[in-house]
Design a protein around this nucleic acid. Structure first.
Lengths: 227, 227
DNA sequence: TGCTGCTGTAATCAAATTGTTATCACTTTG
DNA sequence: CAAAGTGATAACAATTTGATTACAGCAGCA
């Protein structure tokens, strides 16, 4: 993954610390935007949709965690790492309860900050794993290969995309409109009612020729779901 | 949110620490399974699909991070929090690079552990499930599943929508016109007087086959209500 | 060009859901 | 208590939806 496309916001009122953090993140390859207060940040988030935010707890005007809480309440789910000089358990609890994902106490190691950033980006889906496993099925996204019980099986491109969407939304019923949009793409002119049924049928038979595994089940009147 | 359905695995070779962690997590409401080594864990993961794992770095047989790395390489994406007695930056780096999501150094505050667990569960989408409950019934709106006394029961699409409207308006008598509009939709040409009665009958029987619960009661001359 | 494999379409079959009808039971009311 | 109105229940039929199969068009390729 090219990190220069990943936008990180840093909010920190001590300008020397801000510069230092910016420097280290830029050196790690990220695209960084720093703020000295929470002013204008909301506007920036709306426009740029950053992948992660690093927020000092002790900010002029508005407490960092208060800002995050407000942000969460209007629907932004951007991952947040809090920075703080304080180390009281009380503060830590407040930070997490208000929607923080991680918490670091100053002075901190920049290496550790980078590591925690990467872990959080991975978890929030910005950096993607190259293999995904579901029950006894393994999807190798890089190589475009599928293994059932460690035996490779051949899926067509369409079937692979289809199954991948199911794995990404395991347990959730996916309706036909969603699948059409997600797998076939919005433009796809050709389309008949039962096309998806047929595609699903083919996929299910390839994954489980004997028919005892029931990886994918129909949800009557909706679509299908990965059990 | 009901945490009793959330399965957490703890791998820790010092049995007193393991017990302590198990105790605190159980007290917080989670369903916990402890292991003294990584043996058998892989099998457990495949079968139970836990929501999170807490892994000691220093385990007999196999290093904790090595185990996680192996797990990741075959496609398991379960969130992991590492525990360690060591505090060398080297170890921390290794833990994150091998796929850990968070890292805590012993001795640690149990409160902080719980907070970090919750943050990670939130971020990995476990706590965001949209659930509605009423008495001992749980509606999982995302998964389109219904549980009565923690046992899943099968409702049809119509029954699900029907029951959902009742839960949304718990205690309030809903008349037949409202239900027709809300559940069947305004256009529905086909309609007979007693259709709703029959649908309600079928719903009630599925929710409460024995007939002792009286979730839904008729309101004479009006419609029905959730008691 | 002819072969091969992928994918959409159509037709048929099977199954689940839902509406209708008839009958019975219960509540309300005079 | 009787009568009317309303809800419950069971059986049946219609409708909707999913599975399966066969076929045809098409792209890629030797």
């Amino acid at each position: 993954m090219d990190r220069t496309e990943i936008e990180i916001v840093v909010i920190e009122d001590e300008s020397d610390i801000l510069e230092l953090v910016e420097y280290h993140l830029q050196k790690a390859g990220y695209c960084v935007t720093g703020f000295l207060s929470t002013e204008r940040v909301e506007q920036f988030i709306e426009e740029e949709n950053p992948s992660l935010m690093i927020v000092d707890r002790n900010l002029p005007g508005m407490e960092g965690s208060e800002f995050v809480s407000k942000m969460r309440s209007v629907g932004y789910d951007t991952p947040v790492i809090f920075l703080t000089a304080r180390d009281r358990e009380q503060d830590l609890e407040e930070g997490f309860l208000r929607g923080g994902d991680d918490y670091m106490t100053k002075p901190f190691s920049h290496k550790e900050l980078i590591l925690r950033i990467e872990a959080l980006l991975r978890r929030s889906g910005v950096l993607t794993a190259e293999k995904v496993r579901y029950r006894d099925i393994t999807l190798d996204l890089k190589r475009h290969e599928v293994y059932v019980e460690h035996r490779q099986i051949a899926l067509t491109n369409l079937e692979f995309k289809l199954f991948h969407t199911f794995v990404k939304n395991a347990g959730q019923p996916l309706d036909r409109d969603y699948l059409r949009e997600e797998v076939w793409g919005g433009e796809s002119t050709v389309f008949h009612d039962k096309t998806i049924n047929v595609a699903m049928n083919r996929l299910k038979k390839k994954l489980d020729p004997e028919g005892g595994k029931h990886y994918i089940e129909p949800v009557w009147g909706i679509g299908y779901k990965l059990t």
